[in-house]
Amino acid sequence: MFVAKIKVKLKSSVLDPQGQTVRKTLNEMGYDIIPDVRIGKYIEVQIDTKDRSEAEKIASEVSQKILVNSVIESQEIEVLEK
């Protein structure tokens, strides 16, 4: 069994109002040291195989097909054996 840990990030060209609101609050709390916050999502996908290369192939396939929208998002995938 493998687990794919997929970090989905909004591309830098895409406005992130959620991140900006959190950044503003942090600045108001006194954290002037924080100039920017970007909020993304984290997805864990379990893949039932013994073959690492198959697990990696499936992880990148499902990211491309549905988990990530390449128009607005980019991803980092890490595949670990469970």
Binding site: V14, L15, P17, Q18, T21, N69, V71, I72
Partner: peptide, 8 residues
């Protein structure tokens, strides 16, 4: 794509 409104 359609993303979150600027005002949230």
């Amino acid at each position: 794509a359609l993303i979150a409104n600027k005002t949230l």
